[in-house]
């Protein structure tokens, strides 16, 4: 009764997947026309436009909070799954423990979702900041 034995089909499947990837890459290498590669050919395709700057730009990083939310719900789900598959799901005491566990985490999630619109920069605020910076810059320019 070794657990690893049960996972041997999974290992075989992983081997098959790796082999498939290698075969597909090799096949496309064999089949594709080998023409001269230059910077025009290898550049990013942007609907026929000249690409401006690198393709990887950074977004406002307050969006990372959504990943943190996902992680928290992930942990909660894992522990609640353990409870849900066991025979404990009929025990009243354990159900109350689960309710407290879920309520604490969901309270945090609700708090974050409530406070998040106020924590991020809104459009008018960004515009006001931009206007102020522009005014300051033009003021400096006219002084100089």
């Amino acid at each position: 009764m070794r657990l690893f034995i049960d996972f041997v089909p999974l290992l075989l499947w992983m081997g098959l997947v790796t082999a498939l990837v290698i075969v597909m890459l090799l096949a496309s290498w064999v089949l594709r026309p080998h023409v001269l590669q230059n910077s025009e050919k290898t550049s990013t395709y942007e609907c026929g436009e000249e690409p401006l700057g690198p393709a990887r730009i950074s977004f406002p990083y307050s969006y990372i909070i959504y990943t943190v939310l996902f992680l928290v719900v992930d942990v909660m789900g894992a522990f609640m799954w353990l409870y849900a598959v066991s025979a404990l799901r009929t025990s009243v005491f354990v159900v109350w423990q689960v309710v407290v566990f879920a309520a604490v985490i969901m309270a945090a999630v609700m708090f974050v979702l409530k406070i998040l619109p106020k924590a991020q920069m809104t459009g008018p605020e960004v515009v006001a900041l931009y206007e102020a910076a522009k005014e300051q810059a033009t003021g400096l320019h006219s002084e100089g």
Binding site: I64, V68, I105, V112, A119
Partner: peptide, 10 residues
């Protein structure tokens, strides 16, 4: 712990 982490990040 998760509660504190979420509140701290926000």
């Amino acid at each position: 712990l998760l509660f504190v982490g979420l509140v701290g990040s926000v």
